[in-house]
Amino acid sequence: MVVKSDDNKIICRCEEVSLGTIKDIVHHFHCSSREVKLRTRAGMGYCGGRICRTIIEKVVQDINNEKVSNESQLSYRPPIRPVTFGQLGGSENDDES
């Protein structure tokens, strides 16, 4: 369970979004974790939400007191870890896949 004194804790390190900010948004808009992401950028950072995603889901679920529908949850998207455009688009890849 989430307690008040934790509000300054940073949940999304990449985008520096605090627990308090996330809680405020959910209370105000009664929204899904996907909407929290769009409104705060939590989960949109360098790590692609791999550090913060599950905590965001949990906070949102606790406050809304119900299961957030599957469709609204945060999605997994490639690349699995950051990769340079040079590696991605370089000619050495031409014959793969």
Binding site: M44, R77, P78, P79, P82, F85, L88, G89, S97
Partner: peptide, 30 residues
Amino acid sequence: TSENRVMRGIAERALRFLPVLKDIACIRSY
């Protein structure tokens, strides 16, 4: 869904016009 080949094609075409992207990271696709 994100398609690998398309991601590569987009990166390849981007490098043609903006070579500086070579060492910059792609963090996500949609």
